[in-house]
Amino acid sequence: MKELGALIRRNVSLFFKDKGMFFTSLITPVILLVLYATFLANVYRDIFESALPAQFSVPDSLINGCVGGQLVSSILAVSCVTVAFCSNMLSVQDKVNGTLRDLTVSPVRSSVLSLSYYIASFLSTLIICFTALGLCLLYLAKQGWYLSTFDVVCLFGDVFLLVMFGTALSSIINIFLKTQGQISAVGTVISAGYGFVCGAYMPISQFSVGLQRVLSFLPGTYGTSLLRNHALRGVYDEMIRIGFPSEVVEGIKDSIDCNLYFFDRQVELPVMVGILVVAVIVLLLIDIILTGIRSRKAEK
């Protein structure tokens, strides 16, 4: 335990002392928030308003709250994974600059080393993503606040789960990286592609049926949906309260992936949580097994 604690402390210190790495990670969600609010908020608002029947008069704050919830859930869904990839790069850098040799000449087990990278990366990512969530909540408060305390707690829980998922996923990918160039390439690919794959940049409901089915096998999709459900639950309640027909509300939920379907069967929120938890466990097991295999291979 002493070894694990010391390694976690070292890894977290290195992450926060590397100002380039820290600010790049922190700035990702902030830039996303600014870009979304500047360019996409109006698009979302127009789509939402055009989808409403003509006789409906909806308060601005409700529309803003709905659009804001959608933006915030998208930003957090992307950030939890991309920031995890960024913070977890230390394990690759240690390989690249030879520090790993210095750690492995000591009697520390490879599983402890691997776990220390995971936990440290998880903690660093969590700090950044919770900060981002705080900023997002401020943004929602300004746009239109419909969240209950329970919703806020659930959002923190969703971020926690998605950070675990993102960190476990990045740990596995990092096992195969050996150079600085590979680190940059993976970072670019994840930043550019993950938002589409998880339904953050565009709702999955707008993709073709075939693609929707493929994406329904990816756990990240359910993470986005969890965030979206919790960010918008209060908005939907308000819609019902002011007289939106439940069919309309369900239609909105369908269109922005609050309702997700696995081969035409709706996936309930507890099941989404279960999928993410199982995904994290499976990814961690794969990580431990692959780390063991790779370290034995490295000794040959």
Partner: peptide, 21 residues
Amino acid sequence: SALDQPLTVRENLRSRAALYG
């Protein structure tokens, strides 16, 4: 040198010493 360049001397040695308990 395979120690951590961004950390202080004390931090480096503390993290390595812990690996030996």
